[in-house]
Design a protein around this nucleic acid. Structure first.
Lengths: 346, 346
DNA sequence: TTGAAAGCGCTAACAC
DNA sequence: GTGTTAGCGCTTTCAA
């Protein structure tokens, strides 16, 4: 039997012979209320399955205790493992958690602004996507926020908020340093899409820097970009590009894939060509996702401290909320995880 | 320069010397409004970065055009690839799309009810999680809804809505049939957690049915359950359980993993034990995620037609919205994808 | 401890 | 075409 679904606080009040204010107090655990009255009201609430209207509540309330995680690319495996971290840490700090997924093509700052008003947010954590640090909408958001692993334009302007992430240039350089140390000199790279000035661009720079420092001339022909018509950073893209790399007939002994998923695609392409990893070609990835441990051979990679990055993001917004000034960016280091996909030359 | 972020429709009206109604018409593309006035208003709106308050709007509006996708387990790789399908198809049909992530432990029907009121939803599509089909809250939701790939209790009561999915029993049986056809008789299974009456339970039943039909006695010792202290259906869980399977010293030639991710974990355990796939042990997965194609050897699996399932879900809610009656469940068949992880015996 | 009433920002019905 | 106004359902003073 279908009960009427449009019960309001008024209905409950009428049924209990009390005022709406009393009902409000009851459902919100307000201290100044008679236990008896409260119990009676809550019983009616349960009986009629009354659920307060969030819009009305948000509209009226001057503030909430909610911190939103606005993520661009919800499906990204790199992010998914962080959701729990954010949620747990936020709730441990007494905040409510709200996950909001934005599309790549929407105006992220505008959406953030809208959401901050709608939900009376206490703060915002941005995860993923590219946000123009000079966006005027960003200035409009009047709650504290932080960028977590949000790629920024290389050496571009700083956003009006703290950031949490890694130095893509430095860390990519360390990865390539390792390859060089292992004796490789003909190192190809599967970089981001052409013109990428964010994550992909930074890692490409690091790649070049490392080679140069090791006295290896950068061979532009060994630089391959992901295809624009396939989702970036996917195994599928890595597969397609690596096939081209192999078909090029160029001489190389190692491939630096700028993400682990890309490396997984590279694995398949190399295997399909009848070659062996790491015997014929060494492959490294980046990010340190769990799945890399289940590949054959295990992918050598740079592990981003995702857990710590999530925690630090929460710490920063908490500080921001309590008025702390001078909060600086948190730049994390990645950890070189040498597994089995690199062969030592000579 | 920070503009005041609390501009309301009133402020815009005052600045433009018009009534709030006119502003409302302008920002909502109402037909009956002078183009000049509209332009002037929209300019002011842009200038002051005014964004309508969604709560107020939702509170007032009698209906929206939004269909929500309520997903339990946002990070589940099986679901992530469906988001785009839902979004595209929904928008193609003129609906607005809203993705809502719910935690495993929340009361999904109650959250759905709340959301339906808050956003004045047109309909709801549930994806993932376990929903008690007899939940009273479900009856409370007064907008059409559909269960997509939501596991239900085996042979339990039917939910008060159409469902879209596969028959776990039948399809799992087909998978095991294939193993039997390939000459395997000692087949182990990595099933869901103990007592799973949903997806895992159904697939386990299919496994037993197949064996029985092939005149193979079910050896309970070969039935392994995923560990409760590790996330279900993950590679990590598959790894741990398969290690136990191998350590058991039992004789078996094939393993049926009830998900591809589980199979990836099994791969690693088998490899670690110095065994080869499929030479020593054959492994099959289930679901048909892309990543299975990047493993060595490629995982033989049953592919769920996720794309079609998403489309059908949208078709069903559309029908429900336009008052169609007699909409029956959509039961899809999976496709056996024979890749390279099974060896033919004899 | 409680009820009455104001009003959050917006849309829609009604008047002009 | 446009302004005015009545609520949408709720929280929160302010009195009682």
């Amino acid at each position: 039997m279908k009960t009427n679904s449009n019960i309001t606080i008024k209905d409950i009040a009428r049924m209990c012979n009390v005022g709406v204010g009393t009902v409000s107090r009851a459902i919100n655990d307000d201290p100044g209320i008679n236990e008896k009255t409260k119990e009676k009201i809550l019983e009616t609430v349960r009986k009629y399955r009354y659920v307060p209207n969030t819009s009305a509540r948000n509209l009226k309330m001057t503030e909430s205790n909610t911190i939103a995680l606005i993520v661009c690319g919800v499906g990204n495996v790199f992010f998914t493992s962080m959701y729990d971290d954010f949620q747990n840490e936020l709730e441990k700090n007494g905040y409510d958690f709200f996950l909001d997924s934005v599309d790549n093509d929407v105006n992220i700052p505008a959406e953030a602004f809208r959401l901050s008003k709608e939900k009376r947010l206490k703060a915002i954590i941005f995860l993923g996507g590219w946000i123009n640090p000079e966006s005027k909408s960003l200035l409009n958001i009047n709650v504290p926020f932080v960028f977590c692993t949000v790629s920024q334009t290389i050496e571009g302007p700083h956003p009006p908020c703290p950031t949490v992430g890694i130095n893509d240039i430095t860390e990519a350089k360390r990865m390539v340093d390792y390859l060089c140390d292992m004796g490789h000199r003909r190192i190809a790279i599967i970089a981001g899409v052409e013109g990428d000035m964010a994550v992909g661009g930074g890692r490409l720079i690091g790649y070049k820097q490392s080679l140069t420092e090791h006295g290896i001339e950068v061979d532009e022909r060994l630089i391959f970009h992901m295809k624009k018509d396939i989702d970036e950073f996917t195994a599928e893209n890595g597969y397609a590009v690596t096939q081209e790399l192999i078909a090029s007939g160029l001489d190389f002994t190692a491939v630096f894939c700028i993400s682990d998923l890309t490396a997984m695609g590279a694995y398949r392409a190399i295997y399909d060509a009848g070659l062996k990893i790491p015997d014929d070609i060494s492959v490294v990835g980046f990010d340190g996702i769990e799945l890399g441990d289940y590949m054959f051979p295990r992918i050598t990679t740079m592990v981003q401290p995702r857990h710590e990055m999530a925690l630090e993001s929460v710490r920063i917004v908490s500080g921001l909320i309590s008025g702390e000034e001078d909060i600086s960016d948190a730049v994390f280091e990645t950890e070189l995880l040498t597994r089995d996909s690199v062969r030592k030359l000579n």
